[in-house]
Amino acid sequence: MIKDKILIVKELKKLYPFTRGLFWSKPLYVKAVDGISFEINKGEIFGLIGESGCGKTTVGKLILRIIDKTEGEVLFKKQDIFRMKKDELRELRQKIQMIFQNPYEVLEPRLTTFKILSEPLEFHFPTLSDREKMERVKEVLFSVDIKPPESFLLKHSFELSGGQLQRIAIARSLILNPEFLVADEPVSMLDTSIRAGILKLLLKLKKENDMTYLFISHDLAISKFICDRLAVMYLGKVVEEGPSGKVLNEPLHPYTKALRMALPLLDPGRKYYLNVPKYIRGEIPNAINIPQGCRFHPRCPYSETICSREEPKLIEFGQNRKVSCHLPL
């Protein structure tokens, strides 16, 4: 059965230029996203994981087209979103939505919940009556388990807890009935004890509304919990891709293995951190001076000559798996 590919990203690049020193020196670029390709099947939850600075959030913003690309294509249902005109783009905005990382800052404190939720309706459906708007707002609040919806309509963001705020933010992104949702670290700023609630809500909503998700996170354990497939990013490129269980438990790329090792378990006395520095050295270099050849090679315990000369390509490796490494594990 050929799955429908709802989103195809091809060689996507986002470079931020900046000049250092005198104006006739060569321009330097912050290579936030340096050639990313992946495909997401309709109905799945695809994860994009990596540490901060790897470019995953930038990919999310590019897919929403709230920032402009430097190169590459993003095809949503076979249409290149960067070629769309204004009205096509408006329609697109109804279909692709985003959940942001910081629930405390994503809702304006001076507005009431009702105003925040009804605004998107006003952008896209200005002919709706007040009653219809109210109905839809209450409906969507109910679906994110904000019950009873009426008591929250006049509240402001500073009166609500983190979990409630994130639910309202989710409600806002659902109110236009999107098909595709980009969730950018939706629980990382919430208390651990309420994360499960939000994640389970996301799963429930996906089923109810027949959606597809791109789940961006730095947390491996949560990503394994929620994602069907995932891609690991490092310094603007994908280093490994495959089913989440396989990628995390049988990694092919040394970086994935390092991330896995650096995951603390609730195991007293294990001292996981003793092993990590033995395996991987140093820190993530800045995105301006990217190492030659494989960008991970200076930190890699297995690197050989070829790794410092040639950049590996993302190739298929086994069942549904891809890796970008000269010497996969």
Partner: peptide
Amino acid sequence: GLLKSYPHIEKEEISLESIPGSP
């Protein structure tokens, strides 16, 4: 409740629970 809200990556089927309510 707190212990149940940490996903255990090693287990095949991960169970994750929330503590109801807010801080």
